[in-house]
């Protein structure tokens, strides 16, 4: 969930999306140090568990997190009804195939890369690598962050036309130097793959 955090500002330009506002609030430190990576990971998990137990603490912490702010928003109209559309699911909940490389949890700025997940994957082939939210419940039922079975049911029920062959897992909590590569490299790469697959609509879910 702690995606798009930002330590430094001003270096990223988005064409046709308006100007980026800067928010100079105190940075909420939710990170371990590199030298204490193990302790840091444990600390992050404990804080994440605390936020699940006491959601108001999480909301309070989020108020102090710096985000990127925008004045304008891109907009694409639906080109066809959902019942005829090709849909892809993209999550920032740290979901990936068990056989795939886990996200790098030792980098305090997060891991901006993504994992491809075939949309026909069984739920027991999937797992979550993410220390910045408590995924105990999602480990029991991954649909609460990555509703892959619900979407297949909606295709059977003709609410959605079809599912794209490839879905995508990112981790949230991307900060500082990784923001630019997240947007310019990895998000751009996903866009190219969505185009290859003829995707009409994309559903996004956080962790």
């Amino acid at each position: 969930m702690f995606s798009y955090l930002l330590d430094t500002h001003g270096s990223i330009k988005f064409p046709n999306q308006g100007k980026i506002r800067e928010n100079n609030k105190n940075n909420f430190n939710f990170r371990g140090t590199a030298a204490m990576a193990g302790v840091g990971r444990l600390k992050n998990r404990l804080i994440a568990a605390l936020f699940t137990r006491f959601p108001s603490l999480g909301t309070k912490a989020a108020q102090k997190v710096e985000t990127m702010a925008f004045d304008a928003t891109p907009f694409t109209r639906m080109s066809k009804p959902l019942s005829e559309a090709n849909l892809a699911l993209i999550t920032t909940a740290g979901v990936h195939l068990r056989q795939d490389t886990p996200f790098d949890m030792s980098d305090p700025d997060g891991d901006p890369t993504f994992r491809v997940i075939n949309s026909g994957a069984r739920v027991d082939e999937l797992m979550i690598t993410h220390d910045y939210y408590d995924h105990t419940d999602a480990d029991r039922d991954i649909n609460i962050v990555f509703p892959i079975e619900r979407l297949r049911e909606l295709v059977s029920g003709k609410r959605i036309g079809r599912l794209a062959p490839r879905f995508y897992g990112f981790m949230g909590h991307i900060q500082g130097r990784h923001i630019k590569s997240l947007v310019d490299t990895y998000a751009a790469r996903v866009v190219a793959m969505l185009k290859e697959d003829g995707v009409d609509v994309a559903l996004f879910t956080p962790g």
Partner: peptide, 8 residues
């Protein structure tokens, strides 16, 4: 998440 959504 929102950043990726905007790019798409």
């Amino acid at each position: 998440m929102g950043l990726i959504q905007r790019v798409v």
